[in-house]
Amino acid sequence: MPLILTPRLVLRRWREADIAPISAISSDPEVMRWIGDGSVHDGVEQTRSTVAGWEHGWETEGFGLFAVEVRATGELAGFTGLAVPHYLPEVLPAVEIGWRLGRSFWGQGLATEAARAALDFGFTDRGLQRIVSIAQVGNDASERIMNKLGMCVERATLDPYCGRAIRVHALNAPAAPAAPTTADRSP
C-alpha cells in the first residue's frame, strides 16, 4: 500500500474518516468551478461512491488518487494522484495527474508539492513513460502548477461531456542516466 511522505504532506490511500472532509471540499462551488461543468458533488453518499471508484483504480491500474493529509495537523487537504482519463478518449492511452485541495489549503504550494511526489511515484515506482494533465482554459492556478512541474501544452480541445475548452499538458519520464562507457571509467 503506497505511502509517500513529503516535507509537509502524507500521500496515502483513502479511509472512511476522509469521506466527510472530501465531501465538504467537493461541495464547494469555488473548488469545483473548473472541474467538469462546475457542478458540486451532492453530499456524503455521492462522495463515498466517488472515493470507492478512486480506490477501485488502485486495484485495477496499480495507481490512483492519493488522499493528501497535512503532516503537522492530520487534516485532509484534498487529493492528488494518477488516473486514466477515460472521459477524453482522444488522448488515450494516457495517465493523467490531477489534484483538488480545499480552499483553506490554496496558495501554500501544497498542490505542487503533492503533485511532484505523485509524478515521481508514477515515473519511478510505476514505470510510466508519459503523464498528462488536463485543465480547463481559464484555470490559471492549475496551469501554473503544471508549468512548475515541467509540463508543456500538447494540445487544445474540448471536454466532450461539458463542451468547455481544455488544454492537455504532458511530461515525459526523465531519461535514465546512460551506462558508463569504457572511456568514462577511471583506471
Rank of each mutant, 00 (worst) to 15 (best):
G38E: 09
C162H: 11
L65Q: 13
R8H: 15
L11C: 06
A156F: 03
A173R: 13
G62S: 09
A179S: 14
S23E: 09
A170T: 10
L128T: 06
D125V: 05
A117K: 04
L11N: 01
Q108R: 15
D42E: 14
A94Q: 06
P7D: 12
W14V: 01
G98W: 00
A94D: 04
G78A: 08
M32K: 06
L76A: 05
E16N: 08
V70Y: 00
V51Q: 03
S133W: 00
S26D: 13
E96R: 06
H86V: 12
Y161R: 15
A17V: 12
H86F: 14
V44A: 09
H169K: 01
N172P: 02
I4K: 10
M151K: 03
G102Q: 07
G38K: 09
T124G: 12
L82G: 05
E59S: 15
C162K: 04
G36K: 04
G109M: 10
G36E: 05
D120V: 09
E61R: 14
S39V: 01
A72I: 07
T50V: 13
W99C: 07
Y87M: 12
T47I: 06
A17S: 15
I19G: 02
E113C: 07
I131N: 02
R15T: 09
L119M: 13
C152M: 13
L88D: 02
E96S: 07
K148H: 14
A178K: 12
M1P: 08
G81P: 02
N172G: 14
E69W: 05
E61M: 11
F121A: 03
